[in-house]
Design a protein around this nucleic acid. Structure first.
Lengths: 335, 335
DNA sequence: AAGCGCTTCGAAACCGCTTTCTGCATCCCC
DNA sequence: GGGGATGCAGAAAGCGGTTTCGAAGCGCTT
């Protein structure tokens, strides 16, 4: 750690001169100021907050509580984390990584020790056990995901309910009359993960509104799970022609599974996904999808947090409107 | 932040009494001590290092410099990061996430500000530009990966050279006389990423020693890349019967691609992979593999770092011996 | 009632580092 | 060559906390 005395020695002046040269609170001759600035640059000096009082009370660190629970799609979470770090750096903050497994303790520790100035909380559940902590402590926070009762909390998310509706609307407009949602793994719903539940609500609501026959099935990942769910759907809902997938790693296997059953996409079956754009675009059959903009969510979360730290007012909930991109996997019924 | 005076008020004693009750440096009556301890628990008090001097000079934070460069396999990196966080927590440390994109600046900042006590550096290249920084500053570090000149640095990695040899030995023992290495994406080699280069050396060396015909090809990811490389290998090396893959996301597509060419695995072609065990085990044809133990590497790195911080001597390089697990993808030639 | 431990208190010390204050050289100009 | 700027060094203050020191209260024994 290079300190002010190091800079002073390097510049051939006293520490106080360095301080004044940097703060400008007293006039310092140009020659000296330039020498000091050069020394600062050469040594990479950064004032240490530990100095006189509340000047550096802020640690310039944001904590990121990521879940890594079973059923979450790792690349999505990772991209999110990376975008948070990048955005945080752009605001001169660093990011402390908290993982589940500590549960609420991690948050409590951060709040108590002042290790971080604020927290971003991911994988929010409808009735998240971490919420009381976030409400009671003065630690500023932003949630990724909207819990059942978001009052007083700052939340960002894709509007998953609207995303579910949008997919169904799209299929209905194409003439499909029987649709199914192939969801995330069961444990995700058991945990009452907010975004998954909301998508189901949107899907079901829109299907009812359009008077479609509909079914909702959570589904694990992997080839076998895909075969099983495809077979079951075809058996239980013979009129099925529209499917919405909300399960990133299942997109490709599901396409394979339906084709193995003799159903061509989009000839016999239209497929829509809610997933990051790259996943949809690089599937064997490019899939019409509503994008999950993990990177944008991360950036937004950081912006909100920074504004909060600056004392600016922020909206309670930011729901990004879903956008559907048509690709090769959807077509009018019977086309 | 709850401080010692809060605890004192809660317990109805003076701050000094709390200090003594916690440190035991003076006798405190049982009754008082218990009350203090209760107050500590209720308020979640943690001594603030900012107090009297070097006692808390340590920030109890480790920095983790993860790459997120193109060509790295995200789940592997993520699992690694998670294991680092878990291990760090077990040693009462937190983890600060640095990503590439800042390049060396992140490390410099951490070193200069004392934000973290130590660093774990991932994705090490043979001539890594970060090495001078790590050598010059007094910031303790552990590298994941072994650079060309590791003197004075602490490194951990799977012994990728031995892993390459092991795969070839295995194929040779099964009677295969022409083998190919399908490697990571080209940019990984262009960067001179240490582990990738070492694996190639091991592969080539062993192939020469066994007097096998051999070929090495970097390869991108995705179905198309797999088809292209499979076709090319079959065309250019018609006698090919053994393949080593060092490219996680390519394992499944490559199996498909070879079978599309009419080559059955392991009937016509034996396949070995160097990848995390779950990837190999859950492929369409379970693949004989040398496991990349990301979690163990993370844990080891943290242990080494903690020992370093404690002033204990640590070995310069720790190379984990590769272990090959036979699965369904390898068989004797012509069997 | 004085002496003596045992506890506990209040105030001061301390920590590393920066900032601020005071005052001493210069230098310049009349 | 004296007097005011000007520019800087050195010493001290200050920060937010904890730890340490000296001493005081209090109940018991002698």
């Amino acid at each position: 750690m290079v300190k002010i005395t190091d800079v002073a020695r390097r510049a051939g002046v006293s520490p106080s001169t360095v301080s004044y040269a940097l703060s400008g609170k007293r006039p310092i001759s140009d020659a000296t100021r330039l020498r000091v600035q050069a020394a600062v640059r050469e040594l990479g000096y950064r004032a240490d907050g530990g100095g006189r009082g509340p000047a550096g009370r802020r640690s310039k660190v944001l904590a990121l509580a990521v879940p890594m629970r079973s059923g979450v799609h790792v690349p999505v979470v990772t991209q999110f984390a990376v975008s948070v770090v990048t955005a945080a750096r752009a605001h001169d903050h660093d990011v402390l990584l908290l993982t589940q497994g500590e549960g609420e303790d991690g948050l409590a520790r951060v709040a108590d020790t002042g290790l971080a100035d604020a927290v971003i909380v991911m994988d929010v559940q409808l009735h998240d056990p971490r919420l009381p902590l976030l409400r009671s402590r003065s630690l500023p926070s932003v949630l990724i995901g909207v819990p059942a009762e978001p009052d007083g909390l700052t939340c960002v998310d894709l509007d998953f309910r609207a995303a579910g509706e949008l997919c169904v609307d799209h299929l209905a407009r194409l003439g499909h009359r029987a649709v199914a949602l192939v969801g995330s793994p069961p444990e995700v719903y058991v945990r009452r993960t907010a975004f998954a539940r909301r998508l189901v609500e949107g899907f079901t609501g829109a299907a009812d509104r359009h008077r479609l026959t509909s079914a909702v099935h959570p589904c694990g990942t992997g080839r076998e799970a895909a075969r099983a769910i495809a077979g079951r759907l075809v058996r239980e809902l013979p009129s099925l022609t529209g499917v919405v997938v909300h399960n990133e790693p299942l997109v490709d296997p599901l396409i394979d599974a339906f084709e193995e059953l003799g159903l061509s996409i989009p000839g016999d079956l239209s497929l829509t996904a809610v997933c990051p754009a790259p996943v949809a675009a690089s599937a064997r059959v490019p899939v019409t999808s509503v994008a999950v903009p993990s990177a944008e969510l991360g950036t937004r979360a950081v912006h909100l947090l920074v504004r909060k730290l600056a004392g600016a007012p922020v909206p309670g909930a930011t729901l990004l409107p879903p956008r559907l991109t048509e690709r090769a996997s959807t077509a009018p019924r019977g086309a």
